[in-house]
């Protein structure tokens, strides 16, 4: 569904990605693992077109995205939940939820979203999106892209800095949307969490993908993974 070949990205003079290759099949949950600065978030931003300069090939359902603007990438059916969550303080919670335009049929309805995230329903009248707790903001950031009908979701560290009970809720959400046929590319620092939701794991280092480990072989590759991640 998503096929990335020899992806290179730059921020000004700094060359961040040095030829990233990987692919994601339809219906899969795939993670990018790696240490801080390995290029995971930059890979996500590069797919969306949110970096100043990129080269290589990003094919989505067979169509080349490398030269498209971020709004065109989004319209092709990819949605991002960024690491910084990007909840808007000048918008109410409901306005935040309704902000991304629906780009295709098949997204979750508001009722379905409120069933998945009951907290959001309670907080729907909150005047400023940024008044929500960190966990609620994260749920809002995921919820708003489930509405859009995009079936390929990029989730950048959705569990970062959150309490275990909320991490579990996000885990349940990812498994639920996988069941509904969504495809997920997930950036994670926490591979124990990643192991509970993902089919495959790509390991990144120094702006490249250096290994791929299927989830069912994770236990056998623990030593290698510890070495990669330096944990």
């Amino acid at each position: 569904m998503l096929e990335i070949k020899n992806l290179n990205s730059w921020y000004g003079e700094s060359h961040i990605l040095h030829g990233v290759d990987f692919n994601v099949q339809e219906g899969e949950v795939v993670t990018l693992l790696g240490r801080n600065g390995a290029g995971k978030t930059t890979t996500m931003k590069s797919i969306m077109g949110l970096v100043p300069r990129r080269e290589g090939s990003i094919k989505f359902k067979g169509a080349e995205l490398i030269n498209l603007m971020p709004n065109q990438v989004a319209r092709s059916g990819i949605a991002i939940c960024p690491e910084e969550r990007a909840i808007f303080g000048s918008l109410t919670v409901t306005e935040n939820l309704m902000l991304p335009p629906v780009i295709a049929p098949g997204g979750l309805s508001i009722d379905e979203i409120y069933t998945l995230f009951p907290n959001l329903k309670e907080r729907a009248r909150t005047a400023q999106g940024t008044r929500l707790s960190g966990g609620e903001q994260q749920m809002l950031a995921i919820a708003r892209i489930l509405r859009t009908g995009s079936k390929m979701l990029l989730l950048d560290e959705p569990t970062e800095g959150l309490a275990p009970v909320i991490v579990q809720q996000i885990g349940r959400t990812i498994r639920e949307i996988k069941k509904r046929g969504f495809t997920v590319l997930l950036v994670e620092q926490n591979f124990r969490f990643a192991a509970t939701v993902a089919d495959r794991h790509y390991v990144m280092e120094h702006g490249k993908v250096i290994d791929m480990i299927p989830n069912d072989q994770l236990a056998a590759n623990m030593d290698k993974l510890h070495e990669y991640l330096g944990v």
């Binding site: 969306m48 077109g49 949110l50 603007m69 971020p70 709004n71 990438v73 989004a74 319209r75 949605a79 991002i80 960024p82 990007a86 808007f88 303080g89 000048s90 902000l99 991304p100 335009p101 780009i103 892209i145 859009t148």
Partner: peptide, 11 residues
């Protein structure tokens, strides 16, 4: 507030 993010939503 954050134009690139809004654009990445398809606007």
């Amino acid at each position: 507030e954050n134009a690139p993010m809004v654009q990445a939503f398809g606007v």
